[in-house]
Structures are given as structure tokens and as C-alpha cells.
Nucleic acid binder design. Structure first.
Length: 576
DNA sequence: GCCGTTTTCGGCCCGACTGTTTTCAGTCG
């Protein structure tokens, strides 16, 4: 899969072109940026597209025409892209690396090179330590300081945090702002609202008439590390958590447009804006404007979509994956909601690597409105997690039985395991033990570095035992830490379909596995899904919302989710 | 360099904010 590499080269070409003096260069910059975006968001390997249909197929992609298609095919065939190489001779800096530092764009990066010979972060760090930056024309004390901060920020966090960290943080900031009493409403916008798995920044929008006072309070919140930019309508701070946070104060009349605009994604907005133009409107973050240029006041973004002849689109769907067309045709799917969730089929207890007892887990689940959970401890091969053997499961299930008796049907604990899929594809417990359980999750935890074919065979073999109700975290990735293991998901989906095995959407913030696009691919098959928190303590049961968000990003309705079923129906399904 | 259900030429988003300017350039979203 060379998508990321090619997207990054196109992006960098764009940056280098922005140093070009020709008056049309800035439009070429946009063209390359757009092409880079297209390639980076492709759902399939670009080499597959090229192999199937050549340059012509590449040119079908939005923003890719004759020139860029040729560059891409040249790269796929020869491993180099002459357009890129030529520009690189002129501008040797590592633009992609350096531009990740807040406050550094193409022009400044080039100035650093031509004045000081700085090409990369290493060189930059050196120059900062010698205080050489402040002396440069166009730079100064302040800019050196900003760059130094940006550098340490980048090193600290790599600039992105998990949804499971970003959302609570944003909620905390929002509620503190609300407490000021100066704000009518505050919305968490941006990628967090779309429930993206990681976020590079936090976008807050406040409806208020007291811009200045709010900004004063905002920059003093305890989560704030430093003020980057402070104005009356927009303030940017960097947070101790390692990301930046933008707060915008917006008047009532354009609040709806602002919410729409800052929720994104960029591609989705481009599509919506195009529709606005077609219908004689103009849409930007300040509002929807009619033919006469007059602002159509809207406090709610629903007004905007409706004026444009579209149904309101859930933020999780706004990724330019066909949702705009469906909204125009009034055919949007009804997505699963957190309130549809009846139970949690992936939980652990202190018998293995969990922190709490089954009684505590059940009580916690009851308190957040669940009707059932499955207790699914690890199995013996997972030594580090104190995995249990067949006998230990039998013992433990006696405890579960007595708990269920006490609960007397008001709540049910299903008996299960998260059984390890061993290296050869066999399962880590006896067949009799497994078939006696209500709910068996099978997962890969060890020997992750297999080649694609072996890993695929291993997992397919496990599913084909017919003993597996749910395939746990099917790709094994750990966000920001570890890539998925090599696996042919299509074969796994086929196996899941023929064995009536559900695929898990693991709701742990560091997993979210399957991810949104995998879910969308899997949903093409007759497959059910289970959103499980993988809770290792009572508080983890709250992770469900991240799993639901991910399911929504994969466009799933509640009918495809087994833990949205009432207990009776679920038991029937599991028995099959 | 891309794109087109008014176009194969002539458009392509632009405003907020900051620092280093002395009226503006660069960055960001």
C-alpha cells in the first residue's frame, strides 16, 4: 500500500510549489493538495487502481488529472517521481517533517534553509540552541520562541491524542466555560464531533456576546499550558495534554453555519459548499447567504442542510464517502445510538487481568442501564494476563451462577471467555468447555508478526471451528503505537459470514478495532457486529460510546449489532 | 494542475491573527 507515501510526496510538491514565483503556482499548489487528500483517503491501494485501469483509472479520482496521474504511475513503475526529484534539488528541506511544527510553513522552512542550511528537525534544534533563528530577517525573538515550543510539543506528543482522551478533555473545557455564565451554548466541533479515532486539536465553538471576557477565562483554565494566539473571536492555546485547542466565539445568527463549517471534514464541506453554489447560495463559516448576499440566520446547522435540500447528516458520517448524495435523496441510514445498546459482551474480572470482581462489574453495568454483560476472561496461554484453564473457568462460572440467582433475572451475566487463537489457529480451551459457554470471543494476542497468509489462515481456521461467536479486535492494532497485523480481511469476512461469527468493534480507545472503513467493508457481507468495551475495570464500561461512534462512522444501524438486541433475541442468536 | 448539466478557457475561499513590518507577509484552519 503506497497511498500514504504518494500522498505525502504530492503534499510536499505542493509546499515546494508555494515557493514558486509564477502567478499560477498557487493554483498548482491547491491542485497538489487536493490530489494528496484524495490519495490519502482512498479506501484501496492506489497500485490496485492503477493495475486495474492504468492512468485512466487514476484520472477518475477527484483532483487527479493527466499530469498528476502520470507522476503517480511513474512512481509506481520506477520508484521515483521526476517532478518531485526536480523540485527537491531546488528545495532540499524536509518540508513534511518541519511543517509539523506549529508556526512553520513553506516560506519559513525555505528561509531557514537558504539562510542557515537547516534541512530537518535535527538542524532546527541545533540552531535554536545557538539562538540563530531570532537573527534571521523576517524572524525575531518571538518567532524563535514559538518554533522552540512547537518543537518540544511535537517531540512530546507527536501531535495527536486518542478520542478517549480528547473527548473527555473537550467536555471538561466546555463545561468549565459554561460555568462562567457568559455563554449560551458551547459545541465540541471538529474531528472529535465526528468521533475520529485520534485528534490533532480540539475545536470549541461558543455562542456568546462576551468574546473578550470568555477568552480571558479560557486562557486561564488549568488544562492550558500556553497561549498561542489570543483574539476576541478566536483564541488558540496549547494544552498540557499535547494538543492545541481553538475556541471561537460566534454570534447567534451564524452559529449554525460555524458548527457546520468547523465540524468538517474538509472534503464533506467542499461538497456541501458546492451544492450551495449550485443553488445560488454562498456558504462559509460566517453563514449561509442568499442570492442577494443577505445572511440567512441560523442558530442550528440543521437549517443549513435543509435550505440546501438535504437531510441533516450525522457528524460521524461527514467524511465524503457518499453521505451527501444520500442526504439529497433522503436515504440516509438510521445509525445505531448509544441508547440502543443493551449489553456488553467483552469484559474481564480480577480472576485474570481485570481489576474488579464480577459482582462489581455487574453492578456497574446495571448502573449505566445495561441489561446484560458477558464475562470473558483470558485463557491460559496468555500468561501475562493470568489466563485461566478449563477447570478454572468451571470454578469461576459457579460464582457467576450464584450471582445470576441473586439478580433473579433483573440483569444477566453470560458465561464466556476471550479465548486465545494460538499460532496454528487452534483455540486455547477444550472444545467441550467452549461449547458449554454462552459467548465465546476469539482473539489473537501473541505472535503478531506473521506474514499475511499465515495470519489469515490462522484466524480463518479459528473461525471455522464453529465455536466462535465473536472475533475479538480483528486487526490487532494499537493506535499511535502499533499497526494492524498483516491480514487479508476479505477472507476473514467470508469466514465470518459462513460461520455466523460476529466481528467485534472493540471500544477501547487505543484499539477501536475494527475501524470505520473496515466496518464499512465488512458490512457488505451478511455479518453481525458486537461492540464490546473490553473493560478491565468498572469504569471501562463507559468506553461503549467510542465503539458506538466508530460503528456510526462505519454507517451501522442497530439491526446489525448483536448487543443492541434484547437478551432473549441475543441468546437465540448466540445459540445458532 | 484540475475542472466543466451554462465553460476545453479561465477560474480556483479567504478572514483572523501575529510578528516584524512601517503597510504587510506568513501561517492556520
Amino acid at each position: 500500500m503506497q497511498n500514504r507515501e504518494i500522498a505525502s510526496m504530492l503534499e510536499e510538491i505542493g509546499m515546494m510549489l508555494s515557493l514558486d514565483e509564477r502567478p499560477t503556482a498557487r493554483f498548482e499548489v491547491r491542485a497538489y493538495q487536493k490530489a494528496a487528500l484524495t490519495v490519502s483517503t482512498l479506501q484501496e491501494p492506489i497500485e490496485d487502481i492503477f493495475n486495474k485501469g492504468g492512468n485512466r483509472a487514476l484520472m477518475e479520482l477527484p483532483g487527479i488529472g493527466k499530469g498528476i496521474a502520470e507522476s503517480i504511475s511513474e512512481y509506481l513503475k520506477t520508484g521515483t517521481m521526476s517532478k518531485y526529484e526536480n523540485l527537491k534539488k531546488k528545495y532540499p528541506s524536509k518540508f513534511m517533517e518541519l511543517s509539523r511544527i506549529e508556526g512553520l510553513g513553506p516560506k519559513k522552512i525555505q528561509a531557514l534553509y537558504s539562510e542557515l542550511g537547516i534541512k530537518d528537525i535535527k538542524g532546527l534544534a541545533k540552531a535554536i540552541s545557538k539562538h540563530e533563528i531570532a537573527e534571521l530577517p523576517g524572524f525575531g525573538e518571538k518567532s524563535e520562541e514559538v518554533i522552540a515550543k512547537g518543537l518540544s510539543m511535537l517531540e512530546k506528543s507527536k501531535g495527536r491524542i486518542l478520542l478517549g482522551e480528547a473527548l473527555p478533555l473537550a467536555e471538561s473545557l466546555a463545561s468549565q466555560l459554561m460555568k462562567s455564565g457568559l455563554i449560551d451554548k458551547v459545541i465540541i466541533a471538529g474531528s472529535i464531533r465526528r468521533m475520529r479515532e485520534t485528534s490533532g486539536d480540539i475545536d470549541l465553538l461558543a455562542l456568546s456576546d462576551h468574546g473578550e471576557e470568555i477568552m480571558d477565562r479560557f486562557v486561564k483554565l488549568p488544562e492550558v499550558e500556553e497561549v498561542v494566539v489570543k483574539g476576541q473571536t478566536k483564541t488558540t492555546v496549547s494544552l498540557k495534554a499535547g494538543v492545541t485547542c481553538d475556541l471561537r466565539v460566534i454570534p447567534k445568527s451564524s452559529f449554525g453555519a460555524a458548527v457546520q463549517y468547523f465540524t468538517g471534514s474538509r472534503d464533506h464541506n467542499i461538497q456541501v459548499r458546492t451544492i450551495a453554489i449550485e443553488r445560488g447560495y454562498k456558504l462559509n463559516e460566517y453563514g449561509l447567504f442568499g442570492k442577494n448576499g443577505k445572511l440567512i440566520e441560523a442558530e442550528d446547522e440543521k437549517v443549513i442542510y435543509s435550505k440546501l435540500g438535504m437531510d441533516w447528516i450525522s457528524p460521524e458520517m461527514r467524511e465524503s464517502r457518499g453521505e451527501v448524495k444520500l442526504a439529497q435523496e433522503h436515504k440516509l441510514p438510521e445509525l445505531v445510538k448509544i441508547s440502543d445498546i443493551k449489553g456488553d459482551l467483552h469484559t474481564h474480572t480480577k480472576e485474570t487481568d481485570g481489576a474488579d470482581t464480577i459482582d462489581d462489574m455487574a453492578a456497574a453495568a446495571i448502573s449505566i442501564g445495561r441489561e446484560y454483560i458477558a464475562t470473558t476472561n483470558h485463557t491460559k496461554s496468555l500468561f501475562i494476563a493470568k489466563g485461566m484453564n478449563d477447570r478454572q473457568f468451571k470454578e469461576f462460572f459457579k460464582t457467576v451462577d450464584s450471582l445470576n440467582e441473586r439478580l433473579d433475572g433483573s440483569f444477566t451475566v453470560l458465561k464466556g471467555a476471550e479465548v486465545d487463537i494460538l499460532k496454528d489457529g487452534s483455540l486455547d480451551l477444550e472444545k467441550e468447555t467452549l461449547s458449554s459457554m454462552d459467548c465465546v470471543i476469539a482473539s489473537v494476542h501473541q505472535n503478531l508478526k506473521m506474514d499475511r497468509e499465515s495470519m489469515t489462515n490462522r484466524i480463518v481456521k479459528a473461525i471455522d471451528t464453529g465455536l466462535v461467536h465473536i472475533l475479538g479486535h480483528p486487526t490487532g492494532r494499537e493506535l499511535l503505537i502499533r499497526d494492524p497485523y498483516l491480514i487479508d480481511l476479505e477472507s476473514v469476512f467470508e469466514a465470518a459470514e459462513r460461520n455466523l461469527t460476529a466481528l467485534e468493534i472493540n471500544a477501547q480507545p487505543s484499539r477501536l478495532d475494527l475501524n470505520d472503513t473496515n466496518i464499512a467493508s465488512a458490512a457488505q457481507y451478511k455479518i453481525m457486529f458486537s461492540i464490546g468495551t473490553d473493560a478491565h475495570r468498572t469504569t471501562h464500561l463507559e468506553f461503549m460510546r467510542y465503539g458506538v461512534g466508530t460503528a456510526r462512522r462505519g454507517w451501522l444501524p442497530k439491526e446489525q449489532i448483536i448487543n443492541a438486541m434484547p437478551l432473549k433475541a441475543l441468546k437465540r442468536w448466540l445459540a445458532k
